[in-house]
């Protein structure tokens, strides 16, 4: 496959940045998107150019490090897929692909496609934990949990914190991420004591970071590589309203 890439290049946080066009030839359809970028970077290094900086770690879709907006869609148009698990067979030969970093004020660009997602860490620090000694894995059935709650908590817990929800949201809101963490902990017995104070602390921190507000467009859940459902946000709103009513 031969491709034309239009990639966002920005040498550092203070650089204005611009789109740069590259030709990539002999791309195998079996390559992942990141491997395709590796091939381009090897060539750039040989030619004495600066390679394109992008975040990645596990490359098996579970760490949440990789993430870029591909042709206007966070993680590309393949549903429920991280960028590292997106393969080139989903693109047409001769296609032009636009690659941009996550765009949000709380996610400043570090370099090229790398953004600083520390804002997510601070939201977690505000309340994404349980203070009870959870110990080692408990025996099955020692603490009964409703099957529906266990399923919903598990669905929410699959969030890898990649930030695609923020990137896709027209409001730049981090509601799906924050809601996933609140739902995950709030539905389980260990998370009950801090359920409402957690919701308030995490939502307030999310707002303080400069993320936008949720208008229920559903863009987040559509691009989420883990398919976190939109009703996590309803759960967050419910807990937040109860916390403020107290």
């Amino acid at each position: 496959m031969n491709l034309t890439l239009k990639v966002w290049r920005q040498s550092g946080p203070s650089d204005a940045g611009r789109m740069v066009t590259y030709r990539v030839e002999d791309v195998s359809p079996d390559m992942s998107f990141l491997e395709m970028l590796d091939v381009l970077n090897e060539r750039l290094i040989v030619e004495g150019d600066e390679p394109i900086a992008f975040d990645h770690d596990c490359r098996e879709g579970i760490c949440g490090m990789c993430g870029m907006v591909i042709n206007g869609v966070a993680h590309g148009e393949q549903r429920a897929t991280t960028t590292c698990q997106l393969h080139m067979r989903h693109f047409e030969d001769g296609a032009t692909i636009t690659i941009e970093p996550w765009r949000a004020a709380p996610f400043p660009v570090v370099k090229d496609l790398v953004v600083d997602r520390s804002a997510f860490d601070r939201i977690i620090q505000a309340g994404g934990f349980v203070s009870v000694p959870a110990g080692s894995a408990p025996d099955a059935h020692s603490v009964p949990v409703r099957k529906e709650d266990a399923d919903d908590a598990f669905d929410a817990a699959t969030c890898i914190g990649c930030g695609a929800c923020v990137a896709a949201c027209p409001n730049g809101s981090a509601s799906l991420f924050t809601a996933a963490k609140i739902t995950h902990l709030g539905l389980l017995p260990q998370g009950q004591p801090e359920r409402l104070s957690r919701a308030k602390a995490m939502v307030d921190q999310m707002d303080a970071e400069g993320f936008g507000g949720c208008t229920n467009t559903g863009e987040c859940t559509a691009v989420c590589p883990k398919g976190i459902p939109l009703d996590a946000i309803a759960q967050m709103n419910s807990d937040y309203l109860k916390a403020n009513a107290k």
């Binding site: 206007g72 636009t98 409001n171």
Partner: peptide, 19 residues
């Protein structure tokens, strides 16, 4: 808040929710 949260716009942006 939305405008402040995204000062730099996307070159390409495609809606996925279809709404």
């Amino acid at each position: 808040r939305a405008a402040h949260a995204r000062p730099v716009k996307y070159v390409a942006k495609k809606s996925q929710a279809g709404g």
